[in-house]
């Protein structure tokens, strides 16, 4: 039997909202340590990796590892029947479940839904646990704003790191521009900008994907960008007390 209860069901809805335009069908994996998901977008340029630890749930039980194939679109249809303040419980009964049950619970209403599961043959990538040569922490809303602004000028955005901070730049047909974000150690953790740069990097990415990734900014006030030269970048949103959502994006290769 598998059971996982979100005290804050709104959080689960935010996670689904954050990934729904990146991936269509996903395998949700549950085991004794928690729930995880790894899926690529159809063009195999971006990868979503979610980890929710067992300790972050109000109630968690998983006696045997299981894989639940879900359509994100259908999952969202069911989640629309829940309130943002509901507690949400996911449950399966059988060893090889064909449905995933949802209970939405508020002060004055309990709703039950069953979502049909699918058998998905999905490619899994082995993402190495590497050290990145530049790691930047900055407010997620600021990153969203920069991507939106620069994305108007060109479809590719450049990112350059140095000990002084991080620089975003674009060169398009209409002209070019850059935005430098300065390091600060303000007392407000959500406004802090930190750069750990062992080796500076200069990389270029399709801004369209960043604009999709930024839907996850509702999960955390800070975003962590981890980069190494000529390697995929990782954008991480820490989900407080539960785990994290990591979004990987392959770099553009300039010839």
């Amino acid at each position: 039997m598998f059971e996982a209860k979100f005290e804050d069901g709104g959080l689960f809805k935010k996670i689904v909202e954050a990934i729904k335009e990146l991936v269509k069908n996903v395998n949700l994996e549950a085991n004794g340590t928690g729930i995880s998901l790894q899926a690529m977008d159809t063009s195999h340029v971006a990868l979503v990796a979610l980890q929710l630890n067992e300790k972050g749930f109000k109630k968690y039980r998983c006696e045997k590892s299981l894989t639940m194939g879900l359509s994100i679109e259908n999952l969202q249809k069911i989640l629309k029947c829940s309130g943002n303040d509901d507690q949400i419980t996911l449950r399966t009964q059988d060893e090889e479940p064909t449905t995933l049950s949802f209970t939405f619970e508020s002060k004055n209403r309990i709703s039950e839904f069953q979502l049909n599961l699918m058998s998905l043959d999905q490619e899994q990538l082995g993402v190495p646990d590497t050290e990145y040569s530049s790691v930047v922490r900055m407010p997620s809303n600021e990153f969203t704003k920069i991507c939106r602004e620069l994305g108007n000028i060109n479809e590719a955005i450049g990112i350059e790191t140095s000990k002084e901070g991080i620089k975003f730049y674009v060169k398009g047909d209409i002209g070019e521009g850059q935005v430098s974000v300065k390091i600060n150690d303000t007392e407000k953790p959500e406004e802090r900008v930190e750069c750990e740069v062992d080796e500076p990097v200069n990389l270029s990415f399709a801004v369209r994907y960043f604009n999709l990734f930024n839907k996850a900014s509702a999960l955390s006030s800070q975003v962590i960008l981890s980069m190494s030269q000529d390697q995929p970048l990782v954008i991480e949103y820490i989900i407080e007390e539960m785990g994290s959502l990591k979004l990987y994006l392959a770099p553009k290769i300039n010839d």
Binding site: E123, Q124, I253
Partner: peptide, 14 residues
């Protein structure tokens, strides 16, 4: 202006 690389170029399949 360059082309978009794919994740398989960096991460192995498991």
């Amino acid at each position: 202006t360059g082309f978009q690389s794919r994740l398989e170029n960096f991460f192995g399949k498991t």
